[in-house]
Structure formats: structure tokens, C-alpha cells
Design a protein around this nucleic acid. Structure first.
Lengths: 371, 371
DNA sequence: GTGAAAGCGCTAACAC
DNA sequence: GTGTTAGCGCTTTCAC
């Protein structure tokens, strides 16, 4: 690759000044037709490609937004090998001719995937490019800082970036976090009404199914999960029922945390009437563990999730859950970022989107149909 | 957002020169410990965020790779509402509390999604950020050029970018196309052995199932699809059988192209013994149409696909197909890009990955199991 | 180990 | 309509 041609080369070849070259690309109407043609021809002949770095440096904006994602699979969280999907044959048939590494294979889009998709679509619609940074644990901070340096605004998932780093970044560019506003973090947020969603779901179990002995199971200590627990709690308190809660260990800590929990409950003969999980992935893992233990869902135990990922409607029984409008959330993230870009001095913006209760088989609402 | 602090501000505050600030971040070992501490402290205090634009301009590389993707849903191609998945309830249960726009909702990852995932993972692993450009038809060219200007190397899906634009871009940065090398396009390519894969699959239908009357159905005119057709053809020729082919109209042209084809075949009583489709998405659409027409797959007609997307193993009957190692392909794309970055003067690199024949229910290999 | 200075390629006043 | 010019923030020799 020879030296990349620059505006200077193009200008020289077209017999104009560099300003005219610049105008040709950025304000074509300010340039006489014939001049423009000449410039474009020269650019074509030379193989000129405008440098985004130079432009970004010159005009102070990059025209890109950033998303700091991360890989659940590499990241200690659960993944969909753990989901309660009926024996899906990813494996080869009789005459499989080659190995299928299947490494990191993600059968269904997870929460992050669907949000990311919304971010992508909205970025493109609004004329922004999207820079996606990610990777595993190692030097998270360096990576996210790097991404932040390349973009006009940054979206992050909760608990993926140390809070002080986020604070640091948000001093220079707008940052929006896809989570319930935690404390006074002065960040913009996009989230759903976790509390109300979970309260409504729990009420359904209590009022419509007459369940009285419910257990909340959840992995992490994010504000969203906390809000869901509070919703669960509120509902049970209102009904005068006992609130039980059990943490779910992170993958990697032990062999199969869901199985251990279920094993313990069965062993102690303290299996609740219903297990209310903080996320769909937790719920699917629990359903798997229950199936392994020979316990029927929903007849012996009802199970519910939260998120509304695809795997939940593929699982058998299908998973009753609270659906977050993930793609819309991704779009809202971009919308906020762009709004804040236009008014940098305004206070952070937050948006809460509605959820939708999906009553399916795992709570006993629909009978499982053979199909 | 106040003026972003620069190396100058940090240098001043730390009482050093801008060179030292730069070294502190890029070659920490060249800086005395105490100096480094002072610089970092100043940076922290100021909220300093290095500008990737400036760095990119100064050292001639961006540290990012680009992927030009595009949205099938918006783009005239088929999507998964057309897939033969057994009544999956995305819809709300009894007490749905809100609307679910579900706009653009993608139930399963498609071919592009899985390749993209591989690209993402490998980029991160290798320390590159990933710039994803995309969007619909409008000004495809401008968008891809824009993305190209921001990155050190670019990956594109076939037929998404006009060939001359690609050629133009590839004069300046390495470009790899995720497809069979078309002609002498002097681009790098990552692909699979479409010909052999399809020939093997067709042979299976002919030899193991004794089918003699096979119809090839496929949408577009990409080199990959052509290679698949040739494989189909070769296999039938070898067996002395007649080769039949039928194009599948693009979504949007007519109501439901698959249904029309099937309708015609049924009407003319010329339904073949097997339909060999160019892609899984085509195959799933055909299976849907067959189901609607009351035709049993595989008993009355065998159907096969190509790609190995997830939807194919969720569909009933499950889809016999040729699986491309999509994630690996994405990784290979990045690998090639990085190799070419290291040796810009080398000729384009191409890599062909193996496929895997997946014999499932739709060709009659496994009996459909109720589950 | 640290500093001075020369660009990197482009944009946007401002002059003509 | 077009040209001149002064930066944008950083990297990187090359001196010291």
C-alpha cells in the first residue's frame, strides 16, 4: 500500500486548493459543478480516502458512538448451554465430515445481544458509526478508556466498568448506562420498571395461582436485580407472606450452582411452591436443575424469570417472565446520547421503558402442549 | 462539558513536557516512576482522555478494524418471521400489560450475526476495537467509505458494497470479503467449500435416499450460491440425473415467493422429490410453504438448506443442511486483516474453511420425534 | 530520563 | 467560489 493520498495530493491533481477538496466532500453545494467533478475525478484516480482521524481532530467530533460490551461466555456469567432447551441437535448427523468447534457458540441472543442490536440499528439510522469495544476481564479499564477516546458518546452495561472510570469518562463525553440509576452517579440511564414488573409478576403467582411459599433467586448485586427483589418483597408483604431469598453463585465458582441449590432444597425438603428468578438465564438454569431432579414444573414448582430472552419461549415448559423491550432500550440509549451531544451542559437524561408480563407455561398458566 | 484537557494541560499540571505525558501512556517503562505517578495523577485530576483521532493522525493507524454489516430486515432479504419454527409465543400472555412493538425482532441469530460475533470476539482478543457500520440502502457507498476512513482494515459481506467502491478502498487498506472469491478482484476472502459441501449433500439425497427428481431453489446471484448450484449440478450429472433450478424472488417483490413457488409446483403436479435450497432461510421459507400446502416433509418432499443457522435445528422437522463455521469465519477475517496489516505489500490472502454436513429430519434421515 | 519541535490530514474562519 | 492559514492533540525523532 503506497502512501495514502491526502487532500493535498487530490488538490494538486485537480488544480485546486485543499479547502476546495474539503468542501467538495463536506459542502458539495458550495463548490462549482465543474470543480467538484474535477476533484472527485482526482480523488478517484488517486484512491483517496478521507482520514477520519484527521477530520475528528480538526472538528472535534468523531461521528461515532461507542458501546462497551463484554462477553458473557468469557466472563463468568451463565450462558445458554445451561438453558432448558429440549435437546437441540447442534451436533453432526451420521456422516458429519468435520469437527464443529462450537466454541463460544451462542444459541440464542441474550439480553446484551438484543440491546446491542437496538443500539446498532439506531446508530445507523441516525448516521453514526458504532464502535464496539469489549473483551474479557483483562485491562477492562484500558479498553473502555480507549473506546471512549474514539467516540462522541458511550453506552455501557452495568457492572462492566469500574465506577470511577465511568465517572472519569463522563466528565468528557456523555455516558449512558443500561441499568436502573444506582445512586447519585450523575450518569444517564435507560432502564425498565424492574420494581413494578416484578411486583406484578409476583402478585400473579400469589393471587392467580394461590402460591404462598415463594423463593427469590438471583445472581448479582446490581441495582436492577435489587429493584426486582424489592418488587417481589413488596408483593409478598402486601399479601402478608414470608420473603425468602437465595443467591445464585456465579458460574465458575462451583460446578453447577443451580443444581446445588435445588439439591439442597430437595434434600432439606424445603422446596418452595414457586421460584422467582432475577433473570431468565437464572430461571432456565433452575428449570434444568429441577428437570434433572425429576421435579415437575409447574406442577410441583412454578418458575419465573425476567428479561424475555428468546430462549425462554423455546424452553419446555416455556418460561413465564417479564419482558424488557431490549431493542427499544438500545435505541433509547442512542437517542439519549445524541440529545446530550446537542446539549452538553444539560443534566443527565434517564428513560424508563415499560415491561410486559408474559404468562407462559412455567407458572402453570398454560398447559404444556406436545408439539 | 468543559474543554477537553489535552496532553498540554496534563503536562503543565504535572510539571513535565507533553512528550513525557505521551510516554507515560505509551511507553511507561521509559519514564521514571515518580514522573509517571505525577503524570497519572494530573491526568486523573483533569479528567484527561487521550484522543484517538489525534493519535490516529499522528501515528498513521487507528487501532480499529471495520465491519460493514447491513440489516437483512430492512434490506429486502427474508427474515425469520418466515422460518418454520413451531408456534413460538413471542406474544403476550393473558394479562399482557403493554404493547410489544417487536419491530425488527430477530428470533435467532442469522448467518451475518454469527459471523459478526466471530469478528467481534477475535478483534477484542487481538486488541483491536471494532467499528461497525451499516444501515440500509441509502448511501451505502458513503457509509462504507466513512467506515473505511476510520479503520486500519475492513471486512465486508458480499454484495453489500458496489465493487468499484471496494476496489477503491482496498487500494488504501486491506479488505476482506466474506465470500467465495468472485473473479480477479484482488481482495482477500474467507469462505467455505460451497461446491464440495453442496455436492456431498446432494449425493446423500441421491445415494442414500434414492431421490432422483431434485429441484434447486435459491435467491441471489452471489458467487457462493453459484458454487453451491454447481455442486448440486455436479452431483446430479454424475448420477445421470436431470438438473432443475428455480430462482426465489426477493422478499418484497411479491407476497410470499416461497408459497408461490410451491403453489405453482403443486398446481402443475410437478412437485419434486426433493428441494435443495441455496440457504437455510430459503429452505425454512419453503418448509413453511409446504406445511401450509399440507405437504409432508420429508415424506412427500425432502428439503435441505445451507448455512447451519440456529433456526434450522429449532424448526420441525429439523433442517438437514451444510453448516458453515460462521464464528470461525469471522475470526479468520480478522486474522487475515491483521496479517495483511503487517505485510501490506503481500498479495491478498484467502482462506477456505471446511463445512459440515448435518443430516437431520427434513431429508428423512431421522424420524421426527415428538417431544 | 526528559524536552523541543516537526509534522500527521483535515476543517473552518477569513480573505480575496 | 476559491485560496490561505491557523490550529486540532498526539507521536516521535533527535538533542540534551
Amino acid at each position: 500500500m503506497a502512501k495514502r493520498p491526502t487532500v493535498y495530493d487530490v488538490a494538486e491533481r485537480a488544480g485546486v486548493s485543499i479547502a476546495t477538496v474539503s468542501f467538495t466532500f463536506r459542502r458539495p453545494d458550495r463548490v462549482r459543478n465543474s470543480t467538484r467533478e474535477a476533484v472527485l475525478a482526482a480523488a478517484r484516480a488517486l484512491g483517496y480516502l478521507p482520514s477520519a482521524s484527521a477530520r475528528g481532530l480538526a472538528d472535534g467530533r468523531t461521528g461515532a458512538l461507542g458501546l462497551y460490551s463484554f462477553d458473557y461466555l468469557l466472563d463468568g456469567a451463565h450462558h445458554d448451554q445451561a438453558v432448558g432447551v429440549p435437546a437441540v441437535d447442534t451436533d453432526a448427523g451420521a456422516s458429519a465430515s468435520h469437527d464443529d468447534p462450537n466454541e463460544g457458540f451462542r444459541l440464542f441472543p441474550l439480553y446484551v445481544d438484543e440491546v446491542q442490536r437496538g443500539v446498532e440499528l439506531e446508530c445507523w439510522r441516525r448516521g453514526y458509526a458504532l464502535m464496539i469495544g469489549g473483551g474479557s476481564h483483562v485491562s477492562r479499564e484500558a479498553v473502555v478508556t480507549d473506546v471512549a477516546g474514539r467516540v462522541d458518546g458511550l453506552a455501557v452495561f452495568p457492572r462492566t466498568v469500574p465506577h470511577d472510570v465511568l465517572k472519569h469518562i463522563s466528565r468528557r463525553i456523555p455516558v449512558v448506562e443500561v441499568s436502573e440509576p444506582s445512586d447519585e452517579d450523575a450518569l444517564s440511564h435507560v432502564t425498565v420498571d424492574n420494581f413494578t414488573g416484578m411486583r406484578a409478576l409476583t402478585e400473579h403467582l400469589v393471587q392467580d395461582h394461590g402460591l404462598r411459599d415463594l423463593l427469590f433467586i438471583g445472581t448479582s448485586v446490581m441495582s436492577d436485580i435489587e429493584a426486582r427483589f424489592k418488587g417481589f418483597q413488596a408483593s409478598l408483604h402486601a399479601a402478608g407472606l414470608r420473603v425468602a431469598r437465595q443467591p445464585l453463585a456465579l458460574r465458575g465458582d462451583v460446578g453447577n450452582p443451580a443444581a446445588m441449590i435445588i439439591g439442597d432444597l430437595v434434600g432439606a425438603k424445603t422446596l418452595p411452591e414457586g421460584v422467582v428468578c432475577a433473570t431468565d438465564q437464572d430461571a432456565l438454569a433452575i428449570m434444568d436443575a429441577l428437570a434433572d431432579a425429576g421435579i415437575d414444573v409447574p406442577r410441583q414448582v412454578a418458575v419465573t424469570g425476567f428479561d424475555g430472552i428468546v430462549a425462554g419461549c423455546i424452553a419446555r415448559p416455556t418460561l413465564t417472565t417479564v419482558r424488557q423491550p431490549m431493542e427499544q432500550m438500545g435505541r433509547a440509549v442512542v437517542d439519549i446520547l445524541i440529545k446530550r451531544l446537542a446539549h452538553p451542559e444539560d443534566p443527565p437524561l434517564s428513560r424508563q421503558l415499560p415491561v410486559q408480563i408474559l404468562l407462559r407455561e412455567s407458572c402453570g398458566c398454560r398447559t404444556a402442549l406436545a408439539h
